[in-house]
Write a protein that binds this DNA or RNA. Structure first.
Length: 320
DNA sequence: AACGGGTGCAACCGCGAATCC
DNA sequence: GGGATTCGCGGTTGCACCCGT
């Protein structure tokens, strides 16, 4: 027993909407509103299902919609809210007047996700990849680490390879050492021995973990094959370059995590607050929320903001 | 000029929640 | 109260367009 279809598929047109159909739908809704989507196509003389009409209206025809490029400010808001809300596109879109959840989703999937990955940030967790790998090493027992980390790297690898063919990371420009140092076991400094191709995680309590970036990472005696096959004339493989590159992004991971967590808490509180306002009929234009976003704007990406100083053009590398 | 891969966007699908009767 | 219906959401797909070869 399946779900009852929203319409009889045989008599329903699908695919691209024509200007005539748009006109019919828009003028009908202008007169009668959007009360019953199932009846709208019938009454408007359209051979479409109600669902298709609703989608066309909400995503394209609505007069208050904004078409065209997303601004930097909008981009900031999307990334920031995504770090708190995840893929709740409708909630994120609610913060952007004139944008639909579909717009936001498409923009995220086609642009922002890649941009974040290109900066060494996992678009799912909004943490630097190095942070995630470090978490693996600190939370798992040594025998588990290499297998899980290898699997995780496999997930990142394709995207990283793709992106890193566009931007070569100049190792000489990267400062891997951290001025901060404490004895929190979750806090460590990352150093890189470029000669040996190793990244060293120094936890400051006598514990060291070594990542072999040239021949696969290693934990103790185990190592994976990650990064073996992409090397070229002495320079790092794209995947290894990624490691080196994002290794330079943040060196005091636990500190970063604390700041991020605080940021998320604040923002989540704001969102809940707004949802309550909305449920009381006071959602209005969301101005209050937007003012609060502006106040947080300078921290919009919840990792080091200097990452975001990178221009999109910086991701293009003509050498590779 | 033809082709193929990549990209961006519009539209569709299926599910769960909300509402109706 | 419960089944039927409608709505809204997030994931996915299809296709037109662009660009490099």
């Amino acid at each position: 027993m399946g779900r009852i279809p929203c319409c009889e598929k045989e008599n329903v047109k699908r695919g691209q909407w024509t200007p005539e159909e748009d006109n019919k739908l828009a003028s009908y809704i202008a007169q009668h509103g959007t009360r019953n989507w199932r009846l709208i196509p019938k009454n408007a003389g359209l051979q479409r299902c109600g669902k298709s009409c609703r989608l066309r209206w909400t995503n394209y025809l609505r007069p208050d919609l904004k078409h065209g490029q997303f601004s930097d400010a909008e981009e900031h808001i999307i990334v920031k809210f995504h770090s708190v809300l995840g893929n709740r596109w409708s909630l994120i879109a609610a913060q952007l007047p004139g944008r639909t959840d579909n717009d936001v989703k498409n923009y995220w999937n086609t642009k922002l996700k890649k941009k974040l990955s290109g900066m060494g940030i996992d678009p799912v967790t909004h943490k630097p990849f190095s942070h995630l790998m470090a978490e693996i090493t600190t939370t798992l027992n040594p025998p588990q680490v290499s297998h899980l980390a290898e699997a995780a790297l496999g997930c990142f690898k394709d995207e990283m390879l793709h992106l890193l063919t566009k931007k070569r990371v100049d190792l000489n420009q990267i400062n891997f050492s951290s001025p901060n140092h404490n004895h929190n076991p979750n806090n460590f400094n990352q150093t890189v021995d470029n000669e040996a191709g190793k990244m060293k995680l120094d936890y400051g309590n006598g514990i060291m973990k070594l990542w072999d970036m040239g021949n696969g990472f290693s934990y103790g005696s185990s190592s994976s094959s990650f990064g073996n096959d992409e090397r070229n004339e002495g320079s790092a493989s794209p995947a290894v370059a990624a490691w080196r590159g994002h290794g330079g992004i943040r060196t005091s991971v636990a500190e970063t995590a604390a700041v991020e967590e605080e940021e998320r808490r604040k923002l989540k509180g704001e969102v809940m607050e707004q949802e309550e306002i909305g449920s009381e009929g006071g959602r209005g234009d969301g101005m209050m929320m937007r003012r609060q976003h502006d106040q947080h704007q300078q921290h919009a990406f919840n990792v080091d903001n200097d990452l975001w100083d990178l221009q999109a053009d910086d991701l293009i590398n003509h050498m590779v």
